[in-house]
Amino acid sequence: EEEKYTVIYPYTARDQDEMNLERGAVVEVIQKNLEGWWKIRYQGKEGWAPASYLKKNSG
């Protein structure tokens, strides 16, 4: 089951394993960790993003 989330704040990656996020983008969360960083898939790429910048899509 894919978990789709919408980006609610833009984010600029500060590290090579982080993802740039555009507000309104829909991403797939593939791994959650306890530090508040989630691994996401977006446009065929995978990387880490701050969970607080993502909002779960309803339905």
Rank of each mutant, 00 (worst) to 15 (best):
Y5N: 01
E35D: 14
K32T: 08
L34A: 15
W37C: 15
K4A: 09
Q16H: 10
N33D: 13
I8S: 13
E1A: 06
V26H: 07
P50S: 03
S58W: 04
V26S: 06
N57W: 10
A13H: 07
K45F: 05
E28P: 01
E3N: 14
E46V: 12
E28M: 04
A51L: 03
I8F: 05
Y42T: 07
E35V: 12
L34G: 15
P50R: 12
R23Y: 06
A49N: 00
E2A: 10
Q43E: 14
K56T: 04
W48R: 10
P10W: 02
K4C: 12
Y9T: 15
R23G: 11
N33A: 10
E46D: 03
K55N: 06
A49V: 12
Y5T: 02
S58D: 12
V29N: 00
T12Q: 06
V29A: 05
D15A: 13
R23L: 10
G36L: 05
D17P: 12
E28L: 06
R14V: 09
I40N: 01
L54K: 00
W48N: 09
W48Q: 11
S58R: 08
S52Q: 14
E3K: 08
G24I: 00
M19H: 05
W48F: 11
V26Y: 03
N33S: 10
R41V: 05
T12D: 12
N33E: 15
Y11Q: 02
V27H: 00
I30K: 06
K55L: 04
Y42P: 01
W48T: 08
T6E: 13
T6L: 10
A13F: 04
N20R: 08
L21K: 00
Y42A: 09
T12Y: 07
E2W: 04
A25R: 04
I8P: 01
E22I: 09
L54W: 01
S58F: 06
I30M: 06
Y53I: 12
Y9S: 15
K45N: 14
E46P: 02
R14E: 13
K55S: 07
R14A: 14
Q16N: 11
V26K: 03
S52P: 04
Y5M: 03
L21T: 01
E35A: 13
V29C: 10
V29T: 02
V7S: 02
M19I: 14
D17M: 15
N33V: 08
N57F: 15
A25K: 04
Y42E: 02
R23H: 08
Q16K: 09
G24M: 01
A49K: 00
L21F: 02
R14Q: 15
Y11F: 14
D15W: 10
A49E: 00
T6S: 10
L54D: 00
P50W: 03
Q43F: 06
Q31M: 06
N57E: 12
I8T: 08
V7C: 09
E28K: 07
S52E: 15
G44W: 01
V7F: 03
G44D: 06
Q16I: 08
S52F: 04
D17F: 12
G36R: 10
